[in-house]
């Protein structure tokens, strides 16, 4: 038996919305520690990895490891029926062919029950090795979203270059070119919200090119976290990570474009 409950069901809906444009279906792997999901887009350019810790749930019980094969568009249809402040419970039998989703309003005056048919998904998992990245940038997620959206009106590819002082996003297209630089926030600045700062950890300067179409896709997760972390290396996939307070994180990996 697998059973879990989230006070903020809305978070789960946002998570599914952050995944469903990139991958159509995937396996929720549930074990005693939490839930994980990995999926690659059909062109093998981007990978999404979700890791939810059991500590983030108000209830969590997983007697035996279970794999829930889920079509995200279908799940999203059911989650659409959930109220913004509803509590969400998910239940599945060990060998069942469906999972139940229960939405309960704050005052328990409305309870909704949905059964989602599960799929058998034959999906191999990619092994992502532990990597020491050359540059790690933490910035407001809304700022990253705005940059990706605005630059994609000008070109298809963004060049991200990082120095100790700043991270620069450059774009070029038929109409011309441009760049936007974000300076590292002053470290002595004790005032203000940490989530609004730009922090750069740098081992050595790095520059890589990426398709804006995918980055724009990743920014669907902006609603999940005030900050985003970008990890870059030379000729390495970019890791874009959104951390949710104590629930876990969603990570996107994007293969670079390489000059040939």
């Amino acid at each position: 038996m697998f059973e879990c409950a989230l006070i903020q069901g809305e978070l789960f809906r946002k998570l599914i919305a952050s995944v469903q444009d990139l991958v159509q279906d995937g396996n929720f792997m549930c074990d005693a520690n939490g839930i994980s999901l990995q999926g690659m887009d059909s062109s093998h350019v981007a990978l999404v990895a979700l890791a939810l810790k059991k500590e983030g749930f108000v209830e969590y019980r997983c007697d035996r490891d279970v794999t829930l094969g889920i079509n995200f568009a279908n799940l999203a249809k059911m989650l659409k029926c959930m109220g913004a402040k509803d509590r969400l419970s998910i239940r599945a039998q060990d060998e069942g062919d469906s999972a139940s989703f229960v939405f309960e309003s704050e005052d328990s005056s409305r309870v909704s029950n949905f059964e989602l048919k599960l799929m058998q998904i034959d999906q191999e998992q990619l092994g992502v090795p532990e990597t020491q990245y050359k540059a790690v940038i933490r910035m407001p997620s809304s700022e990253f979203q705005r940059i990706c959206k605005d630059l994609s009106a000008i070109g298809d590819t963004v060049s991200i270059s990082v120095t100790k002082e700043a991270v620069k996003f450059s774009v070029g297209g038929d109409i011309g070119s441009g760049d936007m630089s974000l300076r590292q926030s002053e470290s002595g600045d004790v005032d203000g919200d940490d989530s609004e700062k730009v922090m750069i950890e740098l081992e050595e300067p790095v520059q890589q090119n990426f398709a804006l179409r995918y980055l724009n896709n990743f920014t669907k997760a902006t609603a999940l976290s005030k900050t985003v972390t970008l990890s870059l290396g030379t000729d390495m996939p970019l890791v874009t990570e959104y951390k949710m307070d104590n629930l876990g994180s969603i990570r996107y990996y994007l293969a670079p474009k390489i000059d040939e």
């Binding site: 062109s43 093998h44 981007a46 092994g127 293969a255």
Partner: peptide, 14 residues
């Protein structure tokens, strides 16, 4: 010319 790499170039199936 920018060539889009794919993830299999970097990662293998587990």
């Amino acid at each position: 010319v920018d060539v889009q790499c794919d993830l299999f170039f970097f990662y293998n199936f587990r």
